[in-house]
Design a protein around this nucleic acid. Sequence first.
DNA 1: ATTCTTACA
DNA 2: TGTAAGTA
Length: 137
Amino acid sequence: MSDELRRNLALFPIGIVQKLTELTPRQIRYYEQHQLIQPARTAGNQRLFSFNDVERLLEIKKLIDQGLNMAGIKKMMGDQAVPTELPVTEKAQEEAQKVKDLTDQELHDLLKKELILRGRPGMPGSLIQGELSRFFH
DNA sequence: ATTCTTACA
DNA sequence: TGTAAGTA
């Protein structure tokens, strides 16, 4: 499976994303309203976020902390968020299910690994730089 | 127990 | 943004 697809798999419910990003569910939903992210939905209408969504939220958080408003953030990130793909395959749904049994430590390590993986090719990924330090505790 | 939408101090 | 209400 391609990394691109893997990063877009709908795996995390909002509660986990809250822990991973330190953002409140209120904020996360608000950013979705402003089309900064487009998480997938389960049959029961519950949001499922992908690694890409989480990483995007970390960037948003960074910009918010720097005092930008929605307009400013949209301008910085471009306001076209790629919709997270639904866990259509049986395999994908199993992965999403596994996530629920991971400890907070395991979840943070998983995200850290993802951030490092992404930060490879390019230079000091504008976002990755600061956010990454938080996972090196 | 979690999450969702809507509405308002 | 926080939070309460009523659901799913």
